[in-house]
């Protein structure tokens, strides 16, 4: 039992399965610390602007285009089930985008506060975490764009399926 405890105590206290960083790597991080932090600060500021504009645009697509067409079609007694389904998926994807960005923003806020000259390993790991969260935001945007295209195709399909009735309404 004593031997088992001794073996356990002698194990390295690394919880991560990443490669051990060399002294040269740590020195490089410390050397480029200031420029890395400056770059991250600029990215963080620019991200905020991009998010505000994108969030506004995506919301407007839902509120001022998709919802309005669905509503107008329903008022004119067209079957909007496929379009409404896509609208629901779009709103869900929009929520996912906002959540992903909120999580990413929090990590970036913590990241730019790290003194990488004193905590190079922690800084390096946090950059990796921020990169993963940014990937999540990127994926959420891709999903939104996919659904946007799906809605466009669904409207095309709707038009083809109801062409006769639409033409009849034109003649009225």
């Amino acid at each position: 039992m004593i031997i088992a405890i001794g073996v356990f105590v002698s194990l390295p206290a690394r919880a991560q399965d990443t490669d051990v960083m060399t002294d040269e790597h740590i020195a490089r991080i410390k050397l480029n610390c200031a420029s890395a932090l400056a770059t991250l600060g600029q990215i963080k500021t620019n991200d905020a602007l991009v998010y505000v504009n994108r969030n506004q645009s995506y919301f407007s697509i839902s509120d001022k285009l998709i919802a309005r067409l669905n509503s107008r079609l329903a008022l004119n007694r067209f079957d909007t089930t496929p379009l409404a389904k896509i609208a629901t998926e779009y709103n869900s994807a929009l929520t996912d985008f906002r959540t992903a960005y909120n999580d990413y923003s929090r990590v970036m806020t913590d990241l730019v506060k790290i003194d990488c000259s004193r905590q190079p390993v922690g800084f390096y790991d946090k950059v990796g975490e921020a990169r993963e969260m940014r990937q999540d935001v990127y994926d959420a945007i891709k999903k939104l764009h996919t659904i946007i295209d799906q809605y466009r195709q669904a409207v095309d399909t709707f038009k083809q399926q109801h062409l006769t009735k639409l033409k009849a309404n034109t003649n009225e």
Partner: peptide, 16 residues
């Protein structure tokens, strides 16, 4: 937008 490549280790100068 939000391409993760901007946070690559090379871009930040913290790669090995």
């Amino acid at each position: 937008a939000f391409n993760p490549d901007v946070l690559s280790n090379q871009a930040l100068g913290i790669d090995a």
